[in-house]
């Protein structure tokens, strides 16, 4: 379980407050207007930003003061998820050997399996620049499989993809999260994406990260803040 205890983060002149628990098995979409602090919330969980107040706990362990590399977190960013000058194989190998050495034969096998899992068999020696955007995202997901950490964070990594491909990737992410038994939290700006995968939704608006709420219930009976976010044109019915 991920717990945010009375967390407060300064964002310029604004503040972002968060106080809630997220169950381990949840699939969470973080929604909210741009600039409200969706990515900031993710950064605080990942350790790239430090809260001014409050504590962050994972399974009861306080990780507020932990540097990012010590946290049980794998994260995909909007872009720059791969080293562009390293082959797919070497990019993936870094997840197994952070000292840059060659993985052992068991590691090599795992690496090949992970690539197969994201349907990129035989692409080991390609450079990221020679892959399509969707394929690059798949490589990054294969790395998440290899990293095998219990908290999987995604900061709109598929926003540059078309809707069809994006949905495909979101399904793959959900599968990967199930496979490594990870808590999945994904920032998105598209409510329909959220409905596709999320068991819970965290709405970030007006300086507050609301506690996670059941997706179906939220869309069925949106509270005022969520209705504001969806806007008049959005149709709350399925």
């Amino acid at each position: 379980m991920l717990s945010l205890e009375q967390v407060e983060i300064a964002m310029g002149k604004e503040r972002l407050c968060a106080a809630f628990d997220v169950p381990r098995a949840a699939r969470v979409a973080i929604l909210g207007p741009s600039g409200a602090g969706k990515s900031t919330l993710l950064d605080v969980v990942a350790g790239f930003r430090h809260p001014d107040r409050g504590r962050i706990l994972w399974s009861g362990t306080d990780m507020t003061a932990m540097p990012p590399e010590k946290r049980p977190v794998s994260i995909l960013f909007q872009d720059g998820n791969l080293f562009p000058h390293l082959s797919v194989r070497r990019n993936l190998a870094l997840a197994l050997r952070p000292d840059g050495r060659k993985p052992d034969s068991a590691g090599q096998t795992r690496l090949g399996d992970a690539l197969g899992r994201v349907a990129l068999d035989g692409m080991e020696d390609r450079l990221p620049g020679t892959l399509s955007g969707g394929q690059q995202s798949r490589v990054a997901l294969a790395r998440v499989l290899l990293q095998d950490r219990p908290l999987l964070l995604l900061d709109e990594p598929f926003s540059a993809l078309g809707p069809g491909l994006r949905h495909e990737m979101i399904d793959l992410v959900t599968d990967v999260a199930t496979e490594i038994d990870a808590l999945l939290m994904m920032v998105t700006h598209d409510p329909s994406d959220a409905r596709r995968f999320a068991s819970h939704i965290i709405l970030v608006a007006d300086g507050l990260a609301h506690p996670p709420q059941d997706t179906a219930a939220l869309f069925a009976d949106p509270p005022p803040a969520f209705r504001d976010y969806l806007g008049r044109s959005a149709d709350p019915a399925p």
């Binding site: 790239f48 952070p98 000292d99 840059g100 990293q147």
Partner: peptide, 14 residues
């Protein structure tokens, strides 16, 4: 590459 480096836990030498 700071964040990528951190999330991958790369050693200084690597």
């Amino acid at each position: 590459f700071l964040r990528l480096r951190q999330t991958l836990r790369l050693t200084g030498w690597a």
